[in-house]
Simulated scan of single mutants.
Amino acid sequence: MTNHTDTDAADAPGGLMLAPWCGERGLEVLRRQNTAELTEHLGGVESAEQVRRRHERYLAMTDGSAGRMFLLLLDGEVAGSVGYWRHAWEGRDVYETGYAVLPEFQGRGLAVRALLLCARRAADEGVLEWLHAFPSVRHEASNAVCRRAGFELVGEVAFEYPPGHHIRSNNWRLALAG
């Protein structure tokens, strides 16, 4: 396993880094991401209490083998979030990933670069062989991120996110080992 400092600038051109999820900065990015535009394909805007609980779950993710959440920093400014976590899929454990770039930072390829940095962290710190993403089949931008990051499209699946909200998703995966 690789030791990582507070930020991970390895192969992060243009001042892009992953920083550990933290207190006020983490909560603020979740609040800023909690818009109709950014949650359209994720079940919609969450209540303030749901955002606070999500933030607490992210703060608790400190074991790289179980998953981690990161702030996406561009030249020190919070531009979004990315992370990975254990997910039971088709009878086996895999890592699932999620990412969101704030609107003012979109269109620069940051999501692809952040996803690749996150995959590297999952490979370095984790114990599972696959990283999956499950964007809605209608979320063209998120599917393009997976394609450009080198994920393999496994196929279309029924997916539940958030709990109680069923969507048609694409199942993308990336091998983390070898």
Rank of each mutant, 00 (worst) to 15 (best):
R121P: 05
M69Q: 10
P20Q: 10
E160S: 10
P163H: 09
T35G: 12
E156V: 14
F70K: 01
A144P: 03
W21K: 09
L153M: 12
R147L: 09
D75Q: 13
Y99L: 15
A79I: 07
L18W: 01
L176D: 03
H87C: 00
T5W: 02
L74W: 07
Y161F: 14
R120D: 09
M69I: 00
G14H: 10
R173T: 08
L102T: 07
G150P: 10
E96C: 11
G178A: 15
A119H: 02
A9L: 06
A100C: 12
E156S: 12
F151S: 01
L16E: 00
T97V: 08
W89V: 08
N171R: 09
C118T: 04
L116P: 00
G91P: 12
A111G: 05
F159G: 02
V101P: 11
E56M: 06
A19S: 12
E96S: 11
P103N: 14
H139L: 01
L27F: 15
R147G: 07
L73S: 00
S81A: 13
P13T: 14
G83V: 08
A9H: 03
L74N: 00
A9D: 10
Y84N: 02
Y58V: 05
A100I: 12
V94D: 02
E49S: 15
F134L: 13
M61Q: 13
D63S: 01
H132Q: 05
